[in-house]
């Protein structure tokens, strides 16, 4: 891979420290009644890397993502992000902390256009006060235009120009996934959590998505966790891999080691 497009200038004035995304998950356990979804799972995400979480069905991958993004609350263990304990924070507070996500089953707003879907994600970046909004002061107008510029950069990046005014419900599945990635990018997260970004895609769509994710990581420096099943994709994009099985961590390491790990081969790769 070469000649990545660089990060657009509208983002470039950000402080370098705003890229920092150090996530430490320590001994997280989650159970639903008698079902132990996660048992003492620990992992570490470092700034600038792509961590892939793999495992068979029901291994607890999505549960782990939901714990990290605040949709589930683990019974034991702690999750620390950039030195701050985020175990008990709610999803909307985590967005402010800098964790953005996509969902396994697309959770877009189907009746809205692609653009208004993405505009929603700018919510936490809107700084104007309530009274300013009521009177639609010039500064509100300026800020709205600025948000729109940011979105246009993301639209350019993800090649969504042709569909920006289309309602999401009218789009094919693969494009919806791409729009959802765009919406998560509009949150400007430090850590992007992608829950099965390649699920249900055709080969071409997967190739496009791999290109976007690699470019996002290498040119924009975006830190990511992603859940994935397709081993060839995992091998080609991830910095490190964590393998889950029945709620427990089976292995962790660089892709080359994981693919040769006898435990992983027995449990997952077959």
């Amino acid at each position: 891979m070469k000649s990545f497009r660089g990060e657009p200038s509208i983002f470039r004035d950000r402080d370098h420290r705003e890229r920092q995304a150090e996530l430490t998950v320590t001994d997280v356990s989650l159970s639903f009644g008698g079902v132990k979804a996660l048992q003492d799972v620990s992992l570490q995400v470092n700034t600038g890397e792509i961590l892939a979480v793999i495992g068979p069905n029901g291994a607890g991958k999505t549960s782990l993502m939901n714990c990290i993004t605040g949709f589930y609350r683990p019974q034991r263990g702690s999750i620390v992000f950039n030195g701050r304990d985020i175990t008990r924070l709610k999803p909307h507070e985590l967005v402010k902390v800098g964790i953005g996500r996509t969902f396994q089953n697309i959770e877009l707003f189907p009746g809205m256009t692609v653009l208004s879907n993405m505009l929603l994600a700018r919510h936490v970046h809107c700084r104007y006060p309530f009274l300013g909004a009521v009177l639609f002061l010039p500064r509100v107008r300026r800020e709205e235009v600025r948000h729109r510029r940011v979105l246009e950069e993301i639209i350019d990046f993800l090649e969504l120009q042709a569909i920006r005014k289309k309602t999401v419900a009218s789009l094919p599945y693969g494009l919806m996934k791409r729009v959802e990635l765009g919406r998560a990018m509009a949150l400007e997260p430090r850590l992007l959590v992608l829950d099965e970004p390649f699920a249900g895609m055709t080969l071409e769509e997967k190739e496009d998505m791999v290109r976007f994710i690699r470019e996002l990581n290498e040119a924009w420096g975006q830190t990511m966790i992603l859940v994935e099943h397709d081993m060839s994709i995992v091998m080609s994009i991830s910095t490190r891999v964590v393998v889950l099985n029945f709620g427990q961590k089976l292995a962790e390491g660089v892709p080359e080691d994981i693919i040769n790990d006898p435990e992983v081969i027995r449990a997952y790769l077959g």
Partner: peptide, 8 residues
């Protein structure tokens, strides 16, 4: 999804 977008 609204909650996931940072809306309380």
């Amino acid at each position: 999804a609204a909650e996931g977008m940072g809306i309380a």
